[in-house]
Design a protein around this nucleic acid. Structure first.
Length: 910
RNA sequence: GGGCGAUUAGCUCAGUGGGAGAGCGCUCCCUUCACACGGGAGAGGUCGCUGGUUCAAUCCCAGCAUCGCCUACCA
């Protein structure tokens, strides 16, 4: 037997077992084996480093996978990373900048080579970190979104969507990041509320000025308001609401646009809100989404004048004096020029939201460009239906509404990005005839004219395009692999809500479209991990808690258990480090329980102990009648816990599962059963093999229950007791998860009497501060014959646990003079306290208690006198409350008596 | 602007239509041979505010306040 140290020492344990598990291949399921259970990991960015979000996400998945594996499923957890187009390109570009290079100097091919090199060097970091979390992923199936197989899937999907007309190319306004120099989808724009300036500018009418209407127009000009004055250089109209009386006479008139030599019309459009600003709006179709829509609605459509370029600088069309200027420098200059002409009416502070690039936080610029789009409406309809009809269950279900709302308002998805790192769009343009060739394989000649002069589209696809295929591309699609047949659809997707739209919704659309089946049955949406103050953790806030540091400090097991215990549904997690410390104590508690048990296996002859385990599981059931009361009790409590934990995990209530195990191991197994068992163990003549076998059995089951949460310490301990267990496999990883053990309610009830007696005695001792050395005499007056019998049969146990001396049990006992009283459900305890305590203090305590009772009593009396309550409350409730009232009356009388007796004693003793 | 969520012990959080729980912290007692990373006993809460429904509300409903998040084309 390995000798266990007093404190659990994690040094080397985790690495040792993880290596062992990998070597044995426990994490690789057999596609032709039992029923499948599968999860695909939300692939972390290849540039990523493990943060709390990953840690929580991965821990929950690992708990599910380990649980199902132990239940006998072929459990597959596919790991991998995402190529993270813009993010990765940014990282490598920063690296280049340090060397005084940029990607344009390097050229496209060399740059991409450089990114691959970077990936080879640093891209495995997060994978390594996942392993240190104990993640039981099947690493032999690890994928990367730019793997050859996944690239094939991407092309297949693109071509088929194009052929069905669901992918198209169009020139329209998109969100443009001037820093990343690429288009972004709507989702990739983060809106932030900022305080800007609303500038009111005078636009003079082309002379002769029109006659003035009421308000609005003064001295031959109309006033418009804007937060972006520089865009006026691209204005092609001023719009007013057609119903706006103030402006009805000027619709159709023209304006001499200041700082330019252009003339623009005043138009009518019902989208204009007459109550905002002046009720007149400058229209810049090339740089504002609203204005673009307005321009297209006009007949004929308004012209588009692009004054800001893709680098965020003003174009020649902005005018010679502004061309080449940065957009914000230009804003200043325009303001100066307007001011010098007296055209600025006023400036106001103004709260409005501004879009920022989600990768680099640069303010995005709406820009009219040619991009590829997915027509998402038809795909979204099926994806909505799948959730509505229950083919996919979103847990917690409160997220369903969010999902529906987004899906029903979905807009077409801009999928092209003007960067280099990613899946290049499989489109080739013919230089001779202009034909667009869309193809799975790189074509040599134009399909229309046969020309060999083909040029591939420069753009790459949005990173999320390949992510959307992840649940089936990782399983081998478009090939019909065994893995695909066995493991698709996957069982559950575990993720945070922040990528519900980016990723989850798109996976559902693509899965339904290309597999004809949902990609997963359940979507479990877990909380976001925030800091203790509720702030989102981020590098810029400097409040990031590094999971790896916690793992180092407290061990992976304690850390994982903390995450699970925190993972209540529907609420964000405020992470508190003290909790991790608390659960490390729990690891140590478990460790010492195991130490106690392994130290005492020799209390009975080895053959006898072996005999207990000779039968197959459930070994102890066979011996049930030979087991003592407390052993039968702990087995029943174990059964209750097993039931609770399985039920909780089945509903993704990780916190309930974790707390259930914690409660059982610490407070029932350790605090009660082990203490009860000592009586037998330290008196070898009384010790039965059953008790030792029961200790081992409960420990074994506890370890297996706990293993998905705490994989390492459970394996470490389990290996030391494995030799006692019949037909046990070589690792706890592949052992059977406890399920469906028999309960014994009668025994549980009986033991509850003993526990009540013990806590009752301890109560009195503790409250009266009676020395632990004093063996108190106890009288127990029972109300029920059965309770009395149980207590009588277990007196030595009660004496031991409560450090009591003589105990008398009976139905007709009289309370001795000068004794403290404890009231329980089934009996009353009397402990003569004369000489054991300070009478003054005790009287004070009793008075305090009496006041509390009196308060409850007055409340209850009022309630019981109320006609309404008596008439309308359910009978059983009324009965309950009456009984409670009776009890309180009795308790009050007893307290009164005790106080009086103590007072007498006090007088006697001076 | 629309929507969602939160508000429970000093702290971090569970929970329920019939006078509220855990962990940590705090107080007191105990170095008893698994564990002081331990054991035992306690103190501590008008369950955000105001109304309503109900015999009964911390829980259901409405409004308000504070905080957080999502979403949106008010220039």
């Amino acid at each position: 037997m390995t000798k266990l140290e007093k404190h659990y020492n994690l040094e080397g344990v985790e690495e040792k077992w993880y290596a062992e598990w990998l070597e044995k291949g426990y994490f690789s399921p057999d596609p032709s084996g039992n029923e499948a259970y599968s999860i695909v990991i939300p692939p972390p960015n290849v540039t990523g480093s493990l943060h709390m979000g990953h840690a929580l996400n991965s821990t929950l998945q690992d708990i599910l996978i380990r649980w199902k594996r132990m239940l006998g499923f072929e459990a597959l957890w596919i790991p991998g990373t995402d190529h993270a187009g813009i993010a990765t390109q940014n990282v490598v570009e920063r690296q280049l900048a340090k060397e005084g290079l940029d990607r344009h100097k390097l050229g496209r091919d060399a740059f991409i080579e450089r990114v691959w090199k970077w990936k080879a060097e640093y891209g495995g970091r997060i994978i390594h970190q996942l392993k240190s979390l104990g993640a039981s992923c099947d690493w032999s199936r690890e994928r990367f979104t730019m793997d050859e197989g996944l690239s094939r899937a991407v092309r297949e999907v693109f071509v088929r969507l194009y052929e069905e007309g669901l992918i198209y190319r169009d020139k329209r306004l998109i969100n443009w990041c001037p820093r990343c120099h690429t288009a972004l989808s709507d989702l990739e724009v983060e809106h932030e509320e900022i305080e800007g300036i609303l500038t009111y500018i005078r636009y003079p009418f082309t002379p002769p000025s029109p006659p003035l209407s009421k308000g609005g127009i003064e001295g031959g000009y109309v006033v418009v308001a804007t937060t972006r004055p520089e865009t006026m250089l691209g204005d092609t109209a001023v719009a007013v609401n057609p119903g706006d009386e103030r402006y009805k006479d000027v619709i159709g008139k023209t304006i001499d646009l200041p700082l330019t030599n252009r003339r623009i019309p005043v138009i009518a459009d019902s989208a204009v809100d007459p109550s905002f600003g002046t009720g007149a709006v400058k229209v810049t179709p090339s740089h504002d989404f609203n204005d673009e829509a307005m321009a297209r609605r006009q007949n004929p459509p308004l012209p588009f004048i692009t004054v800001i370029g893709d680098d965020g600088k003003m174009t020649p069309e902005a005018g010679a004096q502004y061309s080449g200027m940065d957009r914000y420098v230009c804003r200043k200059r325009v303001m100066e020029d307007l001011n010098s002409r007296g055209l600025v009416e006023k400036e106001e502070k103004h709260q409005h939201s501004v879009g920022h690039c989600y990768r680099c936080k640069t303010i995005i610029e709406p820009l009219s460009t040619l991009q590829w789009y997915v027509n998402t409406k038809p795909l979204a309809a099926a994806a909505t239906a799948a959730v509505r009809c229950g083919k996919i269950r979103i847990v917690p279900s409160s997220w369903e509404n969010t999902y529906f709302a987004w899906m029903e308002n979905i807009r077409d998805w801009c999928i092209s990005r003007q960067i280099w790192w990613g899946h290049r769009i499989p489109v080739w343009y013919c230089s001779d005839c202009g034909e667009i060739n869309v193809s799975r394989e790189t074509p040599k000649t134009c399909k229309k004219c046969g020309s060999g002069k083909l040029r591939q589209d420069d753009d790459v696809l949005d990173t999320w395009f390949s992510s959307a295929l992840w649940p089936f591309s990782t399983l081998g699609w478009p090939d019909e692999t065994d893995d695909l047949k066995t493991f698709y659809p996957t069982s559950v997707l575990v993720t945070a809500f922040d990528i519900l739209f980016f990723w989850v919704a798109r996976m559902i659309m693509m899965g339904l479209k290309f597999m004809g089946e949902v990609p997963f049955r359940d979507v479990y949406i877990h909380a976001l991990v925030r800091d203790a103050g509720g702030e989102k953790m981020s590098k810029s806030r400097g409040n990031v808690v590094d999971p790896l540091i916690l793992i180092n400090k407290y061990g992976t097991d304690a850390f994982r258990f903390t995450l699970a215990a925190f993972a209540a549904q529907g609420r964000d997690i405020r992470f508190a480090e003290e909790r991790v410390e608390g659960y490390r104590f729990f690891v140590n508690k478990l460790w010492n329980a195991a130490r106690f048990i392994t130290m005492n296996t020799g209390a009975v002859p080895a053959e006898e102990l072996e005999g207990m385990f000779r039968d197959k599981e459930p070994l102890l059931i066979a011996h049930h009648s030979s087991l003592d009361l407390s052993s039968r009790w702990i087995l029943s409590r174990l059964a209750a816990t097993v039931e609770e934990v399985n039920a909780a995990l089945g509903e993704y209530r990780f916190n309930d599962a974790a707390n259930g195990i914690y409660q059982f191991i610490w407070h029932e197994f350790c605090d009660w059963y082990i203490e009860m068992s000592k009586h037998a163990i330290y008196n070898k003549s009384e010790c039965s093999a059953g008790t030792i076998a029961c200790l081992i059995t409960v420990l074994d089951h506890s370890l297996r229950l706990l293993h998905p949460f705490m994989p390492f310490v459970t394996e470490e301990i389990w290996q030391t007791i494995r030799k006692y267990l019949p037909e046990s496999p070589e690792s706890i990883v592949i052992s059977r998860y406890p399920e469906k053990l028999p309960r014994d309610i009668r025994t549980e009830e009986e033991v509850s009497y003993i526990m009540e007696a013990v806590t009752g005695i301890r109560n009195i001792r503790g409250e009266l501060n009676i020395s632990p050395a004093a063996e108190v005499t106890v009288l127990i007056k029972t109300f029920k014959a059965r309770a009395g019998d149980i207590l009588k049969n277990n007196l030595p146990l009660i004496q031991r646990l409560a450090k009591a001396g003589e105990i008398t049990v009976g139905r007709e006992l009289e309370k001795p003079k000068g004794s403290a009283t404890g009231v329980r459900d089934s009996f009353e305890l009397y402990i003569p306290v004369e000489g054991l305590l300070n009478i003054g203090e005790e009287i004070g305590r009793l008075m305090k208690e009496k006041m509390k009772v009196a308060e409850s009593l007055s409340f209850l009396s009022k309630k019981l006198l109320s006609d309404d309550f008596l008439k309308r409350a359910p009978k059983e409730v009324v009965e309950k409350e009456k009984a409670r009232h009776q009890e309180l009356v009795l308790k009050d009388e007893r307290l009164e008596g005790s106080i009086n007796r103590l007072k007498e004693m006090g007088v006697k003793n001076g």
